[in-house]
Nucleic acid binder design. Structure first.
Lengths: 161, 161
DNA sequence: TCAAAAAGTTTGCCTGGGCATACATTGTCA
DNA sequence: TGACAATGTATGCCCAGGCAAACTTTTTGA
């Protein structure tokens, strides 16, 4: 199955083109991981936003989600149904949205990562506007290990202020 | 149009629930930005990978893209057609894939960001495996400003090695 | 109180990015 | 040289996440 492959590889790597790439299966796992992260990304954003709205305004209404996510209410409605199915929120028709315990946990988690990334970006000298923008994108792609490293750095930098 | 809105806001913010949230429209723009980034993310990954393959093996074949992206060849084929339409690659049936000038530029750009993020993560003490993993996810969500900040830090840390 | 505005829902549509399956082409080597 | 393995393509399907438009329910204020 891999006879010709191996030969090729040997040929290629031992001559003009050095094979300095990651093993294909490792590479594949990385991308699969990214794809999976993508799936939960939006979900986390909604849940986090719902938590923020509840804290700031006392309740989370679809119209506000729609404004803040920059999508139509139809889209929000569909999303809420999915969050409900996943057991992250509860919602009666025409009422505002509530988080389940699982939802609250996810929101906490997400928020804490978000804050760490944001503080960290500020700490390394990124402007407030950009920091906010990038934190939104980055927060979903940092592992616990990286978050921990960022927290250490942000704290250290704050200490030397 | 905003009479009731304003009243509500006033009421709410001046009583039990402090409004410590971003303005809705700013928030919306942030999310729209993230959504847009998402669209180009996969495209960048493919283009970058194609460039890497060309450099490492002399050519980029669909089968290898499929292995490394962890998707089927059908998916790769569809993607290649889209990259072609966007003017990033050229491809004849049953031949390997080539980058256009635009494609090469995108690959360069993407690669340089990728490398910076990766070095940076290493520099702040993240393990090699995690750094590779996270860099893959983060690279598409960092602005030029943040990349610059990361580069500064990574270089400084290298200097003090 | 009740009509109009606001909020929420439903329906039907589109696109992107997956998959499996079947088919076509190319390359290899017995 | 020709059969078979490897590679590439086409078709048809699915799901997620958008939208617009029409409709229903709730809220508001004259």
């Amino acid at each position: 199955m891999a006879t010709k492959q191996d030969k090729d590889l040997e040929h290629v790597t031992s001559s003009e083109h050095p094979d300095e790439m990651l093993a294909p299966d490792v590479h594949a796992r990385q991308h699969q991981h990214v794809r999976k992260a993508h799936e939960t990304e939006l979900v986390e954003d909604y849940v986090e936003l719902i938590a923020d709205l509840i804290d700031a305004k006392g309740e989370a209404r679809a119209v506000e989600l729609s404004q803040r996510m920059g999508v139509t209410q139809a889209t929000v409605g569909k999303m809420i149904r999915r969050l409900d199915e996943r057991g992250l929120v509860t919602s009666e028709p025409y009422r505002s949205i509530f988080l389940t315990d699982a939802g609250r946990r996810m929101a906490e988690d997400s928020r804490s990562r978000h804050i760490t990334v944001l503080r960290f970006l500020r700490a390394i000298g990124v402007s407030e506007t950009t920091a906010r923008q990038d934190a939104e994108g980055i927060e979903h792609h940092v592992s616990d290990e990286t978050v921990a490293a960022m927290r250490r750095l942000a704290e250290k930098s704050q200490a030397t202020d």
